[in-house]
Design a protein around this nucleic acid. Structure first.
Length: 556
RNA sequence: GCGCCUAUAGCUCAGUGGAUAGAGCACCGGCCUCCGGAGCCGGGUGCGGGGGUUCGAGUCCCUCUAGGCGCGCCA
């Protein structure tokens, strides 16, 4: 494949390499027009429809404005003055109102197949760029089980991390544990109430506490192990800590069963009190704080926030936000150049003050990115299911995984962009049915593995792809060549759901091909060529599923 | 009231400023002497309303309407 452009575009996949070369040639052609000294850089896009070549450019429209000539005329000029020698491009033509359409040469498709097969499980992967990224996601309070929204965030976050790693970042996955503060205190009191109830005493869950079932179970276990725990002095019971650790362990297990493994579970308690004090001191040293009404305020409104925020309350306690600022400060101090937070919609109003804090602490504002993960609305028989933690009635992530399975759940959550609301109708039980899209993609992979098993031999690394000239074969080749660019766009745009659509399309193209063309036993060199195509398709499907955290089965 | 998200086919949703806007589900009709039928093929006058920018707008800007979420010395 290196005959194309040598080392000039090393690191780029074939399609991107070719696209860059075409742009250069276009740019060069533009310079030959009288009166254009420094033409703008051309664009090169994917045609929206078949029959318009493999690349399309609207360059003629742009130049037409500059030279004050009709776009079709400019387009024709560019085609005439375009030098495509040495490129895997069969031709260029001016079309329509001034579009430029390029058709790739057969050699390109041969090279695509060779590239996929040669790079294998690393097809489309970028080399490491040395930049460290911290991706924080889920970060649910340790006051109960994970719910369906957490499951969505986990799928999105984990796959986004995988994507960023794929394009070269050194990514760490992190879960922020809010193991300090009032909620945790209430959790301990709620557990104590449950313990007393089990002992036959009259005790009620405190206002704002946690009435759900799981604390009762936890109390039972605890009482069985340590019957005398309530006889201990309150300080030695450690009820809050026990409840937090119990919940954390439960969360960790559920996430592990979902294929999500964190590099770090960062505890809020580790920030108290020194890191919080340091942070406040730094803000003060920077002139960003002032006293008022007995409290210490952060002048966040000077940095884009709606109003100023309290850091130290009149009673001397620091606020949650003070700790969170300390947390973000720690992220940067730990050496991450980019910190990405996945946030629920109920916290998005919180973002401006954190951004203000990051800036006031001297870190680049664009070093913090926030990705909004919208709500999941649970429906059962068309009715919304209440998801109030306080009321203790919510559908847990564990229940979801028990019903649907990890593969289907992850696949489902990755089909929508994370900032769009999502309806999840349990009564449809779609996830359990065979028409679930995840099976569609997995089935394509299993089918491919089956063909390759029957074939038995080695898949040829090199071969002539000109034999693959049927429309189904060309479409498959085309889609395979799009993968590096697609995965790159998904990572850069923080849009993991693009993987879903890519994978579904690839599986669909394969199924169409399969039903139309016989692979094994095909005449001449066709069997060999088709086996290569099938193997390459299977490889890319496997990569896509792997990035999504979904298994790629050998059979099913 | 202010801020953020959303509005695309009957339903759930894709869609990088470009040419004739796509999938899945649901519905109807076809396809296995043959590599896995969890599959394939065919069936569709839909971008909430109104302005604007542009050669060109589902996409960008303004506005209106509708839905969701947020606006604590809570976490």
């Amino acid at each position: 494949m290196s005959w194309l452009l040598g080392e000039v575009f090393e690191g780029l996949a074939l399609r991107e390499e070719t696209a860059e070369a075409i742009k250069e040639r276009l740019h060069h052609a533009a310079k030959t027009w009288e009166g254009i000294a420094d033409p703008p850089w051309p664009d090169l896009n994917l045609p929206t429809e078949r029959g318009r070549g493999d690349f399309t450019s609207t360059y003629a429209f742009v130049l037409a404005k500059i030279v004050r000539r009709p776009p079709p005329e400019v387009a024709r000029f560019l085609v005439e003055h375009l030098d495509l020698s040495g490129l895997a491009v069969a031709g260029a033509e001016a079309a329509g109102a001034g579009f430029l359409n390029f058709t790739l040469a057969p050699a390109f498709w041969s090279d695509v197949l060779a590239e996929v097969l040669a790079r294998g499980e690393n097809y489309g992967r970028r080399t490491e760029n040395g930049q460290r990224v911290l991706l924080e996601f889920v970060s649910a309070n340790p006051t109960g089980p994970l719910n369906v929204v957490n499951a969505r965030a986990a799928a999105v976050g984990d796959t986004l991390a995988a994507l960023l790693q794929w394009v070269g970042y050194a990514v760490d996955r992190e879960f922020y544990v809010n193991d300090a503060g009032r909620q945790v205190e209430l959790l301990g009191l709620s557990l104590e109430a449950r313990l007393r109830q089990l002992r036959g005493e009259v005790a009620s869950i405190p206002e704002g506490g946690y009435p759900a079932e799981y604390l009762l179970n936890m109390a039972r276990t605890l009482l069985a192990a340590e019957p005398e725990i309530l006889s201990l002095p309150p300080r030695e019971r450690g009820l809050s800590r026990r409840a937090v650790e119990g919940n954390l362990e439960d969360q960790r297990r559920v996430l592990a069963g979902y294929g999500v493994a964190y590099d770090c579970w960062f505890r809020e308690s580790a920030l108290h009190p020194e890191k919080v004090r340091e942070t406040i001191a730094e803000l003060t040293a920077g002139g960003f704080t002032y006293e008022g009404d007995g409290a210490l305020w952060f002048a966040s409104s000077r940095l884009g926030d709606d109003k100023d925020r309290v850091l130290v309350k009149a009673d001397g306690d620091t606020t949650y936000m003070a700790a969170d600022l300390a947390y973000h400060r720690e992220k940067f101090r730990r050496g991450y150049g980019l910190c990405i937070d996945l946030m629920g919609p109920d916290h998005h109003g919180y973002l401006p003050r954190i951004r203000a804090g990051v800036e006031a602490l001297g870190y680049p504002p664009d070093g913090l990115e926030v990705l909004l993960v919208q709500q999941v609305r649970l429906l059962r028989n068309g009715q919304a299911v209440t998801m109030s933690k306080r009321a203790g009635e919510f559908f847990t992530m564990r229940e979801l995984l028990d019903e649907a399975g990890s593969d289907a759940a992850r696949f489902f959550f990755l089909q929508r962009s994370s900032d769009s609301h999502l309806d999840f109708d349990l009564s449809l039980a779609r996830l359990q049915e065979n028409d679930n899209p995840v099976y569609y993609v997995q089935y394509a992979h299993a089918r491919i593995r089956s063909i390759l098993r029957r074939f038995g031999g080695e898949v040829a690394a090199e071969g002539d792809a000109t034999l693959l000239d049927a429309v189904e074969e060309r479409e498959l080749l085309r889609h395979l060549s799009l993968f590096p660019g697609e995965v790159d766009a998904a990572a850069r745009g923080r849009e993991p759901h693009r993987l879903y659509h890519y994978g579904l399309k690839l599986a669909g193209l394969f199924h169409s091909f399969y039903n139309q063309h016989r692979v094994l036993g095909a005449e001449g060199g066709v069997e060999k060529a088709r086996v290569r195509l099938v193997a390459a398709t299977g490889r890319v499907l496997q990569i896509v599923l792997s990035l999504m955290g979904v298994t790629a089965p050998e059979s099913m």
